[in-house]
Design a protein around this nucleic acid. Structure first.
Lengths: 156, 156
DNA sequence: CGTCATTGCGCAAGATTCTTGCGCAAACGC
DNA sequence: GCGTTTGCGCAAGAATCTTGCGCAATGACG
């Protein structure tokens, strides 16, 4: 996994293009990166096989689907033993409102990216699920007003 | 944009599948959702045209590409007028280390999702760029240890 | 209850794309 | 200088995409 891949300029172009449009046909991709289709497809497959490209995902319009509240929760635990951390990490996976979660170091122990249909649902989640969860000490929330930047993960 | 779409069960299946694998062929998708390929493709195009599906993106393995530091920054400003907020939002777009950013309400004004090759680069960014940026009051950072959940945006 | 418009499916066929094997040229090591 | 390796492009068969069309189910309306 932590194999620092050696990629040439064409590989980077491919990664850039597929971050911008992951459903582009291989023919179009090959045109954009300046090689013919077969070697382009082989490069993409290599990038997938080596785990450089982890997956492809459709990004949805949450408000149009009735999800109006995007928020972040910073959660601090009372105890941070490996068992405690793992227990909370497992719990996040069973909360559908939590869409992504990271274990972090700093003032808090976990960062949760949350999505809820409305404010009441989100507040209910924070109060009845999150705050009242065992070993949870502090919960700080930040409701998003709007997203101001959304680039792919990796640039260059 | 805020048109609450009316989607049937097949549409939701399509959205689930394309969040899980955005590069799936239409034939495979149609098999999974239980209809033939042409109406399936028409549904996908409709979802794209209506903006329900915003885009497709390849998700990359950041560590394998030499990006070992993922962090969040909570930024508080001194003044929060619309002009000030917009000025900072514009600035985030010119920082390659900042991959995503949200304007938030709560104790801070912006949440930044950051990616850097190493800790030194990230610290340099925080000290020399972020903290020393005009109108920036407070910066709290949370270095991620590992991601413990990563689902698509919308469930159901 | 009958009729008509609407909606959305599946079939079919041509266009496009995918996928594989193969030959060839450039780069490299010995 | 020679052999190996690497990676490109060509070509052809397989798979997929894309479009038009016919048909059945649904619902509105007289």
């Amino acid at each position: 996994m932590p194999i620092k891949a050696d990629l040439d300029a064409i590989d980077w172009k491919i990664l850039r293009e597929l971050q911008d449009d992951g459903r582009m046909t291989n023919v179009e991709l090959s045109r954009r990166v300046g090689i013919s289709a077969p070697p382009c497809l082989r490069r993409v497959k290599r990038l997938e096989d080596e785990g450089i490209i982890q997956r492809y995902r459709a990004l949805l319009n949450a408000p149009a689907l009735g999800m109006d509240v995007v928020a972040f929760c910073l959660v601090g635990l009372n105890r941070q033993s490996e068992v405690d951390l793992k227990a909370f990490a497992d719990r996040t996976r069973n909360w559908p409102i939590v869409r992504s979660a990271w274990m972090v170091s700093g003032e808090s122990d976990f960062m949760l990216h949350c999505l809820a249909p409305d404010l009441g649902t989100f507040q209910g989640f924070v109060i009845e699920e999150l705050t009242s969860s065992p070993n949870v000490d502090t919960v700080r929330t930040a409701l998003t007003i709007r997203q101001v930047k959304d680039d792919g993960l990796v640039a260059i």
